[in-house]
Write a protein that binds this DNA or RNA. Structure first.
Length: 223
DNA sequence: AAGAGTACCAACCGCCACTTC
DNA sequence: GGAAGTGGCGGTTGGTACTCT
């Protein structure tokens, strides 16, 4: 299929947004909403591509954007979800109110680099699932958070086979991280990740199961 | 003080999935 | 059913701020 460019390149502005442009975009969306992103810049009188407007709004101008550093809980959530979902930033962002996929992606890439470096030194990483998947070639091991498993009748590791089937097996691993090799995890700042974040253990267990199940249904996999 | 290296973040690009006609 | 249009996603880049030597 032949695709038309998202916008005419000629005459459209690129690069950082000015305050004036931001104001125009905000007031236009407040008044008219954003029914059609491609038509929006024209209607609003912006010399920007619709895609650019959308990105600016979603990643920066939305009123519910939470800015600033990620809390420990948010970091934990990102690490957990990334272990399950991989680079599905928008799905991860959906679990973190006020955070955008772009922000999470940036955060991950910055710290992933750090982890990769440390991995070469001590062969331990907080980015284990992909490595486990790559290394094993026959499936992935997914250690559930201890708090999610400790009081549940289902404990330990979720084994995901290449055909999409999965099964639980017991795991002696402690801690919160998702480690294909069962090592104790720590967060990116080097601290051992806490285990007091959640009290609804059964619910969380259910959440991880549901999340995993739905994420694989998304991919058309049968579990 | 200055240059080099690193971290962070906003923005762009290209592709894919979904919807409409 | 298929082409065209659109929205959304993930990868990547480039600029700026910060830290280190």
């Amino acid at each position: 299929m032949v695709r038309t460019p998202c916008c005419e390149k000629m005459g459209l502005k690129k690069g950082p947004w000015t305050q004036e442009e931001d104001q125009i975009l905000i007031s236009h969306i407040q008044q008219h909403g954003h029914g059609n992103w491609r038509a929006l810049p024209k209607q609003a009188g912006l010399l920007r591509c619709g895609k650019s407007c959308r990105l600016r709004w979603i990643n920066y101008l939305r009123p519910d954007i939470k800015r600033g550093k990620f809390s420990n809980e948010e970091v934990e959530t990102i690490l957990k979800l990334h272990g399950i979902l991989g680079n599905r930033w928008s799905t991860i962002a959906a679990r973190l109110p006020g955070r955008t996929d772009n922000e999470i992606k940036n955060f991950w890439h910055t710290h992933l680099k750090r982890n990769e470096r440390s991995t070469t030194i001590n062969n331990t990483s907080t980015y284990p699932l992909q490595e486990a998947e790559a290394d094993s070639g026959s499936g992935a091991l997914l250690d559930m958070p201890q708090e999610a498993t400790s009081s549940s009748s289902v404990t330990g590791t979720l084994l995901i086979a290449n055909d999409g089937s999965s099964s639980w097996r017991n795991s002696p691993a402690k801690g919160l991280g998702f480690h294909g090799n069962g090592t104790v995890s720590s967060d990116i700042s080097g601290k051992t990740m806490g285990s007091n974040a959640h009290s609804e253990i059964g619910e969380e267990m259910e959440f991880w199961c549901n999340l995993f199940t739905s994420s694989h249904h998304d991919k058309g996999m049968e579990i």
